[in-house]
Amino acid sequence: MHRLLLPGLAAALLMAGGPARAADGPPGGPPGASSCTGCHANAKIADSVIPRIAGRKAADIVTFMREYRSGAWPSSVMGRIAKGFDDQQIDAIAAWFAAQPE
């Protein structure tokens, strides 16, 4: 599933600090991040239809989360979850996962 990135969004994220911010934050990542790995495996595991997000580009994660939240990109459960996070929180979670080993 490939989505075109919004150039403005990616630039905004870089200016917001990107992965470096995650390293300065609290252990375990920014608010909400640690819950994600219940479904999105941190380690590489066999036989899951749920994609891993560790090591993905922050801008990609941001784009998905915003589009799930708005409903522009259809989803089963992610739209319901994304509605619990504002832009800043999504940016921080995306930066955190982008900084994790792929």
């Binding site: 219940g38 479904c39 595991i45 036989d47 239809v49 749920i50 089963s76």
Partner: peptide, 22 residues
């Protein structure tokens, strides 16, 4: 969707048990 969520359920179980006990 119902079939998809059944697949997600199974994937969730494999993922969480790997994180906790794997």
């Amino acid at each position: 969707l119902r079939g998809q969520e059944a697949l997600y359920a199974a994937s969730w179980f494999r993922t969480i048990t790997a994180e906790v006990y794997g």
